[in-house]
C-alpha cells in the first residue's frame, strides 16, 4: 500500500482534531504506521483548525505534506490560509452549508445537514469520518471500534452510519480509485 493521507479543515469546536485522533487510532489498530498532526489556535471555539493523518504500511518518513489524498472542509473560517492544500489535494470534499465559498474541483457534500437531519448537529465531524469509510479510506468497523470508548458512543455510531450511507448514495467515481 502506498502512503496515503487524509486532512480535515474546520473551525474550533467542530471536533476536527477529535476526528483525526479517532481516524489515527482506527488505522493504528489495523497495524499501520500512522502520523497525525494538527494546527490550531489558542481559542476554545472558533479559529482555524486543520488536522491530518498520514498512514502507510512502512514507516512514515516525512509527515509534513502540502497535498492530501482526501481533504474535507467542514467550515470556511479562514480557509484562505489553506488554499494550497485545496489546490493540490486529489479529492476535495466541502460541506455544502457551512462552506459558502466556491472552490473549483471541490465536491459539495451535505455533511452538516446530514448531522442536523439525524438530530445530531455538531457531530458533522463523525459524519465526515463515516463519509471517509464510505470512500474506502478506512474500514467502518475499525472506526466504530475506535469510537467505542468515547462519550455518547451511540450517537457517534449513528453519525458514523449516516456519513457512510451518504458517501454511498453520492456514488463518487473517486470511490473506485480508493478501493484499489
Amino acid at each position: 500500500m502506498k502512503e496515503r493521507s487524509v486532512c480535515l479543515i474546520g473551525s474550533g469546536g467542530q471536533g476536527v482534531v477529535f476526528a483525526a485522533t479517532v481516524l489515527a487510532n482506527a488505522l493504528f489498530a489495523k497495524g499501520l504506521y500512522v502520523a497525525q498532526l494538527q494546527n490550531y489556535g489558542a481559542e476554545v471555539r472558533g479559529g482555524s483548525v486543520m488536522a491530518y493523518v498520514v498512514f502507510s504500511e512502512s514507516e512514515v518518513v516525512n509527515p509534513f505534506l502540502n497535498s492530501f489524498n482526501v481533504l474535507i472542509v467542514l467550515h470556511d473560517f479562514n480557509v484562505s490560509s489553506w488554499m494550497k492544500y485545496l489546490e493540490y489535494s486529489n479529492l476535495v470534499i466541502v460541506d455544502d452549508l457551512l462552506v459558502s465559498k466556491n472552490f473549483c474541483r471541490a465536491i459539495k457534500a451535505p455533511l452538516f445537514r446530514k448531522a442536523l437531519e439525524i438530530g445530531l448537529a455538531g457531530r458533522e465531524n463523525v459524519v465526515a469520518l463515516g463519509f471517509l469509510a464510505g470512500l474506502n479510506v478506512v474500514d467502518k468497523d475499525d472506526l466504530k471500534k475506535a469510537l467505542m470508548n468515547t462519550r455518547d458512543f451511540e450517537q457517534n455510531a449513528k453519525a458514523l452510519e449516516a456519513g457512510y450511507e451518504l458517501a454511498l448514495q453520492m456514488r463518487l467515481k473517486e470511490l473506485q480509485e480508493f478501493s484499489k
Binding site: 493504528f28 500512522v34 502520523a35 497525525q36 494538527q38 514507516e59 509527515p63 509534513f64
Partner: peptide
C-alpha cells in the same frame, strides 16, 4: 510542537 503534539507509532 510538531513532534510534541504529533502522534506517531
Amino acid at each position: 510542537e510538531f513532534i510534541a503534539h504529533g502522534r506517531e507509532v
